[in-house]
Design a protein around this nucleic acid. Sequence first.
DNA 1: TCACACATTGCATGGTATGCAAATGTGCAG
DNA 2: CTGCACATTTGCATACCATGCAATGTGTGA
Lengths: 257, 257
Amino acid sequence: MHTMQCVTNKGAGAGLRERKKQATRAALSEAAVRLAAEHGAENVTVEAISNAAGVSPRTFFNYFDSHDDVFVMMDPDVGERVRRAIRDAPAELSPLDAVREAMAAELAEVELRHEVWSLRAKVFQKSPHLLARGLGLHMAEERDLARTIARRIDPDGPAGPDVHGGPGGSGSGTRSDSAAPAGADPCEDADIDLYPRLLAAVAGTAARVAIEHWYAHSPPLTFPEIFRDVFTHLSAGLPQPPAQTDDRPSDGRTTES
Amino acid sequence: MHTMQCVTNKGAGAGLRERKKQATRAALSEAAVRLAAEHGAENVTVEAISNAAGVSPRTFFNYFDSHDDVFVMMDPDVGERVRRAIRDAPAELSPLDAVREAMAAELAEVELRHEVWSLRAKVFQKSPHLLARGLGLHMAEERDLARTIARRIDPDGPAGPDVHGGPGGSGSGTRSDSAAPAGADPCEDADIDLYPRLLAAVAGTAARVAIEHWYAHSPPLTFPEIFRDVFTHLSAGLPQPPAQTDDRPSDGRTTES
DNA sequence: TCACACATTGCATGGTATGCAAATGTGCAG
DNA sequence: CTGCACATTTGCATACCATGCAATGTGTGA
């Protein structure tokens, strides 16, 4: 199992134990994507993935909650990083701009690790329900994101506890406990405003659309361009773009200048 | 198993055969929601649902592709109705407005069958992953919606076959074949523009947020109000709303004038 | 080195999902 | 009314998903 150069500083101040876990997780994730890109996610059993990664099938479930999660979860810390970026963004940025910048920074990885994302694209095309599942940020993340946005807008909000990541160790260990810790109150949502909730959801969706569109039109357009276009549409209120029969193949350019 | 008065004209020009299928589907769906509202979706087995509906467990899978689908699929024809409404909308409406109106018409049902949706809300609160799954329109629907929007904007588009529902019988029979009919080309996506794609995705997300927010703040606000507010935010470009700690109950009005 | 902590593994169990063939029920022509 | 054609239901068998538990092996700190 090859270890892999990670973009962010992972396994930095960690012992051998921690690094092995990271390696195992990466091996499973990569093997899964690689197999699924060829045969389709549905036709790749947990046994096959574990086998390709060189671990027991039982171990698979020590790292991922379900068969599908291995294709969807990429980095348990991405949500926390985005939220931190939003908190630390310059005060003069509008909420939408703050979210856009935070996501753009995180999605830079998409272009760096181009190959893996390209494979992931194949997987998602073959089984769209995976897209519905985890992309962007899944629902729990969306709630936290909404809360962070609300806090940025009005720090004296409904006294909800500020949402931070766990201790230094982070969630990179076995089994990320993303969902509610057993007895969490589902009515917790009630204190979130409509606007932050909407912004969080729409921003996540926008990121997803940007990625989808990017690997549908991969050659002519770069990801940052598409990402920028998407948020331009959004902040303009989604008006109908000026004609631009766009798909007419003669010209590569798609949307606005 | 009680039959049920359906809002739309179902089982109208149908024989006994068709009506029985509708009844079975409704019985399964209702039993599932009712049980899940109390015990949580995860703790309700297919056997229990089938048992409550008075059919064999095997029959359950003749109607729904998975355990989760029974909570999510409500009406196989809703997507087609929305698309038709968009096509038939007055030409002077902006794309965003056309989509908004089409969805509003469809979501009127949410207020009519208030009780079922209230139960559904409980289910979704207890297991958020269901929300992620099928809400509003799942991904396949989103693609069709995007195509319809593109066609409305530019009827002389990339010659993609216009997307319509099947013959009169509709998809109400056994097992809705929503996904690709076996050998569908996944690269079909490539000819859809960024703007229609984004609008379809964002509109779907907006509808979801409206429903979530509605049953999180059910008493003070009506669903049409929230729905209108959501799309107001959207068409305004998601600017930060004017302070308005909003939860303050004194005034019904939520966003801008 | 020794003992502790933790990850991996095998085994057992229960639930999910599908294919196939027999039984049952509906629709329709004779 | 009777019998045929067809669709649905059902039971059975099978494979996979997912979890709990106990035993084992390896990293960590004293």
